[in-house]
Design a protein around this nucleic acid. Structure first.
Lengths: 218, 218
DNA sequence: GAGCACCTAGACAGAGTTGTCTAGTCGGAG
DNA sequence: CTCCGACTAGACAACTCTGTCTAGGTGCTC
């Protein structure tokens, strides 16, 4: 809370969803810390896991953490930022495989279906992290709102390509289904939620998309 | 964690959704503690708020807390249990005003719409609380799963009354919309999510309900 | 008036937290 | 060889947290 050395750029994610940041291949201690933080913070909660556990898992010294990130909070936001990036890459790559907007949208829910079936799945990292933090004024909120607006923008854009009447509204509803799937699957420990959300999305698209268009012309 | 005096009955909620438990009108310190816990834990998170803050807000001595509940964790589960009860009562009362199953289901989303517009709204208390706790083996999980299954059962039952083909599936999807609305509204600080969820629910019911039935005969 | 249930005030133990600081190791570049 | 940057190991300060325990007050009933 006092000095805050590096990690100010953290908020510059958003958009560049290609892969492997061109900035600089970060050193080793940083990567080890981020990996350990990703495992522990997600699995047990940001608050529950102390710094000592993280550095022990990472196999680095405490000074390395504070030289690299400056504070625990900065490590947390870095962890969330990386997670957001990974998720956005997974979505865009999977979506790129489909040609038609409708299939692209549904493919996003296939990503969710796969995600929630993974062994350590424990719900949405952003929802979880922002449930723990102070109400405002922390970096966590920033990453959360930017990730959520990214997802909503993605769905809105694809809805626009589909040619629906109100892309913003449809995008918001698809994002709601996305959130509902991830959170429900986490809470109920039941991956079926992803397929339910996919079916609801298909239903929404059937109702909103103009039936005439048949030639794919993005 | 050591002794655990009272509060073992906490899990006996579920079902009796009438009002005012017939057991015994609890003493004053307990009520004050529950009220303070409800405000602070929900607003700032279970982990962030310490015992001292709770007893200060409640205006009771620390010994009263430990005599009444036995531990912080027991207070947390009591807080969640009470919250679940309140929510279930609000839902059942609002639903009772409608005659047709379809309107009952949509009325549940009106409750959400009203809920997310309230000043201190900060998402789903159960999602938030279970994001903070240990992965398993705590009372929080118990309250969460029981509340969630109650909600899903409610929607399933109403779907059955509506006469859909697969009430379980429709109920699960309505519950997913419910969760999605509450969590999205909390994360995005945007109450519109409730209306989106309501619209999606209406769409789902239109698609699933048999069109023939016109006489309301529950 | 005595006894009793219920309450308050607050010191304190013991553990856990983040963050700082010293001292030292190691591998390469000049 | 020497310097330098990046790292390790871990002691330590300065908290905060839960939970316990003593000491005492207040209002009720018998």
């Amino acid at each position: 809370m006092t000095r805050q050395i590096g990690i100010v750029k953290a908020m510059a994610v958003h958009q560049k969803t290609t892969r492997s940041a061109p900035e600089k291949i970060e050193g080793s201690a940083r990567e080890k810390l981020l990996r350990a933080a990703g495992e522990l913070f997600y699995a047990e909660g940001v608050h529950t896991v102390g710094i000592d556990r993280v550095i022990e898992r990472a196999g680095v010294a405490k000074a390395s953490l504070y030289n690299t990130f400056g504070s625990k909070e900065a490590l947390v936001t870095a962890y969330l930022t990386e997670r957001a990036q990974t998720r956005q890459e997974a979505l865009t790559q999977r979506i790129a495989k489909e040609a038609a907007p409708r299939e692209k949208i549904l493919a996003a829910f296939d990503v969710v279906a796969e995600l929630v079936k993974r062994p350590g799945f424990r719900g949405c990292a952003f929802v979880n992290a922002s449930a723990e933090g102070q109400p405002d004024a922390d970096g966590v909120r920033g990453v959360c709102t930017s990730t959520r607006s990214w997802t909503r923008a993605l769905f809105t854009e694809l809805s626009r390509e589909l040619g629906v009447r109100e892309p913003e509204r449809v995008g918001a509803r698809l994002a709601l289904l996305y959130t509902g799937a991830v959170v429900s699957a986490g809470m109920d420990r039941n991956p079926d939620a992803a397929e339910d959300a996919r079916a609801l999305a298909a239903m929404l698209l059937d109702a909103e998309a103009p039936k005439r268009t048949r030639r794919a012309r993005s």
